[in-house]
């Protein structure tokens, strides 16, 4: 996933769309947008940062999970098997991105709307291009800040955005390989 911080306005439309699509209970936001201020008056910057599960390459949540409920699919999506999860909460404290919450006894988090993606793929649709195969947050974004696609496919929309722009990931020093890329400027 790509979040273009130059475009994001913190409107929380994605937050609301996610809550509705996934039926998350009050207080649980699998997708949310942070409102971050840096600097001191009058030299202040304020940025809006969509966060959630980063579907890391090397997800600490998966490694710590004692029940193997948390897994990583071949396409990179990190999933939780609610039938395996014992709700120990270890993954919550292992995640550097505050992405998980224990709801009704099991760990929950963003799934990239995996059911929607799978159903879309089954119908021959392309995730990130066809709304029917794209996560709800991306579909809802009113600033074209959120994008979804296959970063390993050099022809994908995502690869194009990453090539044309400079990006970073959050807390890269933790070496979890997070998979939300934040665009902040054009490529040099």
């Amino acid at each position: 996933m790509v979040a273009d911080l130059r475009r994001c306005v913190g409107c929380q439309t994605c937050t609301a769309a996610c809550k509705q699509a996934n039926g998350t209970p009050p207080g649980v936001q699998w997708r949310r947008v942070l409102d971050l201020e840096t600097g001191e008056y009058p030299e202040v910057k304020r940025a809006f940062v969509p966060v959630g599960c980063m579907h890391c390459d090397d997800p600490p949540c998966m490694h710590v999970c004692p029940s193997t409920a948390t897994r990583k699919r071949p396409d990179g999506i990190v999933t939780i098997d609610y039938d395996l999860c014992i709700g120990c909460g270890y993954c919550m404290v292992a995640c550097p991105y505050e992405a998980r919450a224990k709801v009704d006894g099991v760990a929950t988090k963003c799934t990239f709307c995996v059911d929607r993606i799978d159903a879309g793929l089954a119908n021959g649709l392309k995730p990130g291009v066809d709304p029917e195969a794209t996560p709800a947050c991306v579909n809802s974004c009113i600033a074209k800040a959120l994008h979804f696609g296959d970063a390993d496919d050099p022809q994908s929309n995502l690869s194009g955005l990453l090539a044309e722009n400079q990006s970073f990931r959050l807390s890269e020093d933790l070496e979890t390989g997070p998979n939300i890329f934040y665009l902040w400027d054009k490529a040099l």
Binding site: M62, H63, V64, C65, P66, S67, T68, A69, L84, C85, I86, G87, C88, G89, Y90, K102, D104, G105, V106, A107
Partner: peptide, 25 residues
């Protein structure tokens, strides 16, 4: 005490499923 904290208590044995990477297992 920690068993009391788990969300799905009857599945306690699932804690044993991941000895390969989980220190909890």
């Amino acid at each position: 005490a920690v068993w009391l904290e788990t969300g799905r208590k009857l599945r306690a044995l699932h804690v044993l499923f991941n000895p390969f990477t989980s220190w909890m297992t």
